[in-house]
Every structure is written in C-alpha cells, then in structure tokens.
C-alpha cells in the first residue's frame, strides 16, 4: 500500500486517565494522530479541539429539500399536471398536503444525514479499516501517534509521555 503509516500507540484502560493524558500531550506539544475509544467519551471533543460536527446542517438541508420536493411536487401534480376535483375541495388543498410534506421532510433529512455520515467517515458495507488493537472496541482506550517524520529522539519522547501518562501498553504497528 502506498500510504502506509507506522503508528505508535498507547493503550489505557480508563477514560479519565485518557482525558488527562490528552491534556498532557497537548501541553507537551505532541501531535496526536487519532484517539480510539470503545464508546463516546464525554469531553473528548474539547480535549482534542475537534470542530463541532456539521452533520445537523446536512440534516437541515436535506429536510428542506424533502419538504420542497413533497409540497411543490404535489402542487404541480394536483394544480397543473392532472387537476381533479376531489370531494369538492380546491385543487391546491394545502392542509391535505401537510402530512406527506412532513413525512418526506423527515425521510430526506434522515437518509441524507446517514448517507453523508458514512461517506465522509469512509465507512460502508464491507469496508475494512485497519485497526490498531482488537481490544479498542471492547474496553481499551487508545492514543495514536504517526511516527512518520519523527526523529528517534521524538519517538522516545512520545514513548516516555505514554508511559508517564498511565498507558498500560505501548506498541507500534504499521497500518
């Protein structure tokens, strides 16, 4: 593989220790590649300075698209394409269009968000992303560093940091 990475990582067994370690790493200006956890850890986003997810904006856009598709679609069909009088009601019977408009808003927003979530995350059926350790999805928390471009001294520094911050195991793996 072209872009193989040599990853140095430490495994922790508690999320509070992990959070402290991340703060320490930041203080020491170490460049964390990624953090892997078995469940969403509170405060991890702030600790890693992750930008707020914009997924809800995607949801809003798709929801708007759904609402417009439904409402304008029904309007076009019932007013322009094939007008029929049903029960003596006007062609453009807005109250009757509301249920379907609502349903399609929800449907579009949900499908749009879920699809975007998987696509931008590089996830999908049959995708195999390399994992560092099998226990990360069970009960271990992992801080990973990319060794590329680090001098031997830097690597030792990272190793020392991992050890000091409470990592129980330190490994390297090429992924």
């Amino acid at each position: 593989m072209a872009n193989q990475k040599e990853v140095l990582f430490g495994l922790y067994s508690d999320e509070e220790v992990l959070l402290k370690a991340i703060h320490k790493a930041k203080a020491a200006h170490l460049d964390i590649m990624d953090v892997f956890t078995p469940f969403p850890v509170h405060g991890l986003d702030e600790a890693l300075d992750l930008k707020e997810s914009r997924l809800h904006i995607v949801g809003f856009i798709f929801g708007l698209l759904g609402a417009l598709t439904a409402f304008l679609g029904m309007t076009w069909i019932f007013v322009d394409d094939w007008p029929i009088i049903i029960g003596g009601k006007p062609y453009w019977s807005v109250p009757a269009f509301i249920p379907i408009t609502f349903e399609l808003t929800v449907l579009f927003a949900s499908i749009g968000m879920v699809v975007v979530f998987y696509v931008i995350g590089g996830l999908g059926p049959g995708v195999t992303n390399p994992t560092l350790d099998d226990r990360i999805t069970d009960d271990k928390f992992c801080i990973a560093f990319d060794q590329h471009g680090l001098s031997e001294k830097d690597v030792d520094k990272v190793k020392a940091f991992l050890k000091d911050s409470g990592a129980e195991e330190i490994h390297t793996k090429t992924i």
Binding site: D34, V35, F36, T37, P38, F39, P40, V41, L44, D45, L48, L50, S53, L55, H56, G59, A109, S110, M113, V114, F117, Y118, I120, G121, G122, L123, G124, P125, V127, T128, N129, P130, T131, I136, T137
Partner: peptide
C-alpha cells in the same frame, strides 16, 4: 456489517450528533 468502524474520536462525535438528530 460493521462498516469498517474503528472507534475514532471524530467518528464518535459525528455518531453522537447523528443519533441525537435522528
């Protein structure tokens, strides 16, 4: 069926956001 899930911090953040909006 696990779609290549790794437990990365960014994935979890989006996952939380997605679950809440859904």
């Amino acid at each position: 069926v696990s779609f290549g899930w790794t437990g990365s911090a960014k994935h979890w953040q989006r996952h939380e956001s997605l679950s809440l909006v859904l």
